[in-house]
Computed example of a mutant assay.
Amino acid sequence: MRMAAAQHALANDWPAMILRRVDPSRNMSRFWSARLQPSLFEEVLLVRAWGRIGSRGQERSYWFATRQAALATFEKITAAKCRLGYAADAERTTGAPAGRGWMLKYPPGSHGVERPREAAPA
């Protein structure tokens, strides 16, 4: 593996976003998430997931040759979802969701749903 590929695969600054849209009057409770991640073939994946909050939902991946192309698409579709009424939950993210230096409190793929923890044995 070339040195550039090794740095690409080990980078830890891959953006991710979890958005929610909840409207009780319309019985709407949806999530939408997107994240960038490296592939095994020196490409970049944009992974999108969506569905009803609490469900597994659906997931789709898109391949990009460069990180810049994937990041431009990531920002474009995230802005489009925000225009449709989706918003980041303040409890689930730290920092400004619009910036690139923010981190998620919950791991990607969890859809911001906390699982109940089992009681520790006494």
Rank of each mutant, 00 (worst) to 15 (best):
A96D: 15
A88W: 01
S61V: 03
S29L: 07
W50P: 00
A88L: 00
S61P: 00
R52V: 14
T73A: 10
R67A: 05
Q37P: 04
C82E: 14
S61C: 10
F64N: 00
A98F: 10
R83Y: 02
Y86Q: 08
E42W: 11
L40N: 13
N27Y: 13
A96L: 12
V44P: 01
I18E: 03
Q58V: 12
L104Y: 01
L46S: 01
V22A: 03
F74S: 01
Q37E: 14
S25M: 06
Y86E: 05
A79C: 01
L84G: 09
L71K: 01
F74P: 02
T94C: 08
A98W: 08
Y62L: 13
R20D: 07
I77A: 07
A70T: 05
Q37C: 06
A65S: 12
F74C: 06
K81L: 11
R83P: 04
D13Q: 08
R20F: 10
G99T: 14
V47P: 00
N12D: 15
R48A: 13
N12A: 15
A79N: 08
G95F: 03
C82R: 10
A79D: 12
G85P: 05
S29E: 12
T94E: 12
M28E: 14
A34K: 04
P97Y: 01
S39Q: 04
R26C: 12
G95C: 02
L45P: 00
L19S: 05
P15I: 10
E75T: 09
A98Y: 02
G57D: 09
R92E: 03
L46C: 07
D13V: 13
T73E: 08
D23K: 06
S55W: 04
S25K: 12
L46I: 09
P97W: 05
Q58F: 10
G57Y: 00
R52G: 11
S29P: 00
L45A: 03
F74T: 04
G54M: 11
W50T: 04
G101S: 15
D23C: 13
W50M: 10
G101K: 07
R35I: 00
V44M: 04
Q37A: 06
L84P: 01
F41K: 09
L36G: 00
M28R: 14
L45Y: 12
Q68V: 10
F41Q: 04
Q58P: 08
K76Y: 12
A79M: 07
A72F: 01
L19Y: 07
A80Q: 15
R21M: 10
A72P: 07
M17T: 09
L71Y: 15
R26W: 11
P97R: 09
S33R: 05
A69T: 13
R21S: 05
N27Q: 14
R20C: 09
L104R: 05
R52N: 11
R35G: 10
T94W: 08
S39G: 09
E59Q: 13
C82Q: 10
K76Q: 13
R92W: 03
E91P: 02
C82Y: 00
G51S: 11
P15N: 13
